[in-house]
Design a protein around this nucleic acid. Structure first.
Lengths: 140, 140
DNA sequence: CTGTGTGCAAAACGTTTGCATGCCT
DNA sequence: AGGCATGCAAACGTTTTGCACACAG
């Protein structure tokens, strides 16, 4: 769980500057379970800091990703999403509204067939469940 | 497994025309385990049918995807990949060379925690293992 | 013969980059 | 004061679209 404060500290360690723009982005990411795209982050921070540019949002997210503080999620064809929860966890994606939600709990532990381990060293894995959420079911 | 012939038949059923361009794309997809991008398909078919355009490749892949004859794989940030193997199966992705390979066998059966099934009806799932392949290990 | 498919060029889209100015440290 | 961060505009790579011509049915 990345608090804005912990990100500030990590930025200071690396001699990156703490600007109001970056601070705003940190706060938006803190505890964020929505898997926002860069645009989502931009829209939110624009309300607080209306002069911010897309460039700054992209660059800040890029730094955070390189630092390992957010994960880039490649689930959506159209745009990249970011997840401040960097612990191993998995996602359900609604094919109706494209909403991405976390799966709670450690119930999912896929393992590779033995033979593959001779040819491939896995470092992480990710499970995506595609389906329909309650809201979209009701709409049909 | 989609043979070119079976795709021809499905196109005929839907009154889509069979052109040499489409036929060439079908043949490239037949038994293809490389998870090609649109560009990969374009490069291959260009050798056989040099006047073909990107537009035709994109449109044909789009039709095939809407018909459910290929799956769009969203694993790579940079571009979309297509998989003519529409049976449930999973992938290993080398972080060194970005190669996507199939995992053989049905060893992987992730299940959702019970609680989630009240809120979400899964229709399919996909597991991605990220790691390093033999070739890339040897290079280091 | 009719209408769908093709291919060009241009647009669209999300994302990245170059550069002058601004501001954190 | 110095140098990194910002924000604009332009570039980028992939994908989509509009349209006139071609050709499969």
């Amino acid at each position: 769980m990345n608090t804005a404060d912990s990100l500030v500290e990590k930025f200071r360690d690396k001699r990156f500057k703490i600007t109001p723009q970056r601070m705003g982005i940190f706060k938006i990411l803190e505890g964020n379970l929505e898997h926002p795209s860069a645009e989502n982050v931009f829209d939110k921070i624009k309300k607080i800091y209306p002069t911010i540019s897309f460039t700054t949002v992209y660059k800040t997210l890029d730094i955070l990703e390189k630092m390992g503080e957010v994960l880039k999620i490649t689930i959506d064809d159209e745009r990249k999403h970011y997840d401040p929860n960097t612990a191993t966890h998995h996602h359900i994606i609604c094919l109706g509204c494209n909403k991405i939600s976390d799966i709670e709990g450690g119930h999912i532990n896929p393992t590779l067939p033995d033979g593959i381990l001779n040819e491939f060293i896995p470092s992480r894995y990710h499970v995506s469940f595609y389906g329909t959420c309650k809201d979209c079911l009701n709409e049909q």
